[in-house]
Design a protein around this nucleic acid. Structure first.
Length: 506
DNA sequence: TGCGGAAGTG
DNA sequence: CACTTCCGCA
């Protein structure tokens, strides 16, 4: 109803932080830049130009002024603004296009990929719209595994969305360039609060508030999940409309962006909090097709500029065990272990409705004390690496990225070198449990057990010791009957439960 | 022009 | 934390 007739504003929610949110800050410079970039009105001031994601500040002073207005910093000038931009270098949000005056380039790889890691960044790049880096289409409600979105994103980056961003985007839509003292468009705030609700509701009445639409079972199953088509044609890309035009004419059924494009990334379902806006919303709807194209192309430039490839390399480790797909070796022929995913014992006290395998009901309590110690290396490792690799490590690669690109070095390779024994893999060979319909879980469990076992056998001596040490230290004697594995499996059990639950509901 | 250190701000 | 402000250096 109250859909501002603004010609396609389209920023992904994740790009903003609602003022209301705790750590929310005001608009960030890059948001602002992006915003200007997508507005015709400012094409004389700033515009996409050159490479993908590359833009030129045609009128530095004006941009600075606008920025100043937006931030209520009348003293703002290009010098200062550029300093701010320069800070983005390290964050890898931007980088300078050398040789070209006032030309910078967005590292969408970072901005976008991180949020849409499922997109294939393969270098198959075809022609891509130049000035219109599209963004994946909404409709996806991702969910990261146990780890939180913030784990995936740099802590110091605000790309992560706290929760719902429904409206913030909208506000920018209009009060794009100012709202403080300059009458230019002082509507943001107001508008925002107003729209907050129906925004969530979307333009259409049929659009349920964003929360947790039927989540595809799990990436591995719903790879081809059909996504609701965005209400709005695509001209509303977060970026200037692409020459390619809106594929609105005939959008192929919206496939999950997590499509077969890249197995690496489709193994987990991104978190809803990171998800693009609800497709219903008119605020943000991007088309996977475009996104894919863009990203592919962008990848090239990314490679050219050595932008962080870690985003990619990294994800595989988050991967969730894949159901065996004989038809398609999901990827990485060799240089990567099937999955180096270590389950982190989920927080206890939650749904434990699955019958605890071989664990007393009360085990929950006992194990709750154990869990922390048990955490072989998941949490810290996973999280730390994640962040590091993803973002902070930035510096490391700052100049060595090339290498990274060429020879992705995985954090740990000590993973199960051999394909798991068939028996272990066979879904049929039902396990002790309800050997039927908990494939994922089972797989997880097995995988994990396997992992644990191997580690226990010496592969991962460190962690093994760690675990034991901890166990001893905590007076938690090894399970008499089951040995370490037993405990592990218990935890695993829980973990899997947690995980499957996680994926089930939401 | 562009860079990045350093200190300051909310 | 994300700038803002100032500044020396190239």
């Amino acid at each position: 109803m109250k859909t501002p007739a603004e010609p396609g504003f389209a920023f992904p929610d994740w790009a903003y932080k609602p003022e209301s949110s705790p750590g929310s800050r005001q608009i960030q410079l890059w948001h602002f830049i992006l915003e200007l970039l997508r507005k015709e009105e400012y094409h004389d001031v700033i515009a996409w130009q050159g490479d993908y994601g590359e833009f030129v500040i045609k009128d530095p002073d004006e941009v600075a002024r606008l920025w100043g207005v937006r931030k209520c910093k009348p003293q703002m000038n290009y010098d200062k603004l550029s300093r701010a931009l320069r800070y983005y270098y390290n964050k890898r949000i931007l980088h300078k296009t050398k040789g070209k005056r006032f030309t910078y380039k967005f590292n969408f790889n970072k901005l976008v990929l991180v949020n849409y890691p499922f997109i294939d960044m393969g270098m198959t790049g075809g022609p891509v719209p130049q000035s219109a880096p599209p963004v994946p289409s909404g409709g996806t409600h991702f969910r990261f595994p146990p780890c939180t979105p913030s784990d995936v994103l740099s802590p110091n980056e605000d790309l992560r969305s706290p929760t719902l961003y429904s409206s913030v985007a909208r506000r920018l839509a209009r009060g794009s360039v100012s709202d403080c003292s300059d009458g230019t468009s002082a509507n943001s705030e107001v508008e925002e609060s107003l729209s907050e609700e129906h925004l969530r509701r979307g333009p259409g009445p049929d659009i349920p508030p964003f929360r947790g639409p039927p989540l595809p079972r799990l990436a591995h199953e719903g790879i081809f999940r059909v996504y609701p088509r965005p209400r709005v044609p695509e001209p509303l890309s977060p970026f200037p409309v692409s020459p390619m035009g809106a594929p609105n004419s005939l959008l192929p059924p919206q496939l999950s962006p997590a499509l077969p494009m890249t197995p690496n990334h489709m193994n987990y379902t991104p978190s809803p909090t990171l998800s693009p806006m609800y497709p219903g919303g008119n605020h943000f709807s991007f088309n996977p097709e475009d996104m894919k194209r863009y990203l592919q192309a962008h990848t090239q430039s990314v490679y050219n500029y050595h932008l962080s490839p870690r985003a990619f390399l990294h994800y595989p480790s988050i991967v969730v065990p894949q159901p065996q797909r004989p038809d398609k070796p999901l990827h990485l022929p060799h240089d990567e272990p099937p999955f180096k995913f270590k389950l982190q014992p989920p927080p206890l006290g939650r749904k434990q409705r699955e019958r605890p395998l071989g664990a007393e009901p009360s085990s929950s309590s006992s194990s709750s004390s154990v869990v922390p110690q048990i955490k072989v290396e998941p949490i810290s490792d996973a999280e730390e690496e994640e962040e590091e690799l993803m973002v902070e490590v930035t510096d490391i690669s700052e100049e060595e990225d090339e290498d990274v690109f060429k020879a992705p070095t995985l954090p740990e390779q000590k993973v199960i070198p051999s394909p798991l024994p068939t028996r272990d893999e066979e879904p049929h060979s039902a396990g002790p449990e309800s050997g039927r319909c908990i494939p994922l879980k089972l797989r997880f469990k097995r995988r994990w057990s396997e992992d644990q076992r191997l580690e226990a056998e010496g592969v991962g001596e460190d962690s093994d010791k760690k675990v034991r040490g901890n166990l001893e230290e905590s007076n938690v004697p090894p399970q008499p009957g089951g040995g370490p594995c037993r405990r592990v499996s218990t935890d695993l059990q829980r973990a899997t439960e947690e995980l499957s639950l996680e994926n089930r509901d939401s």
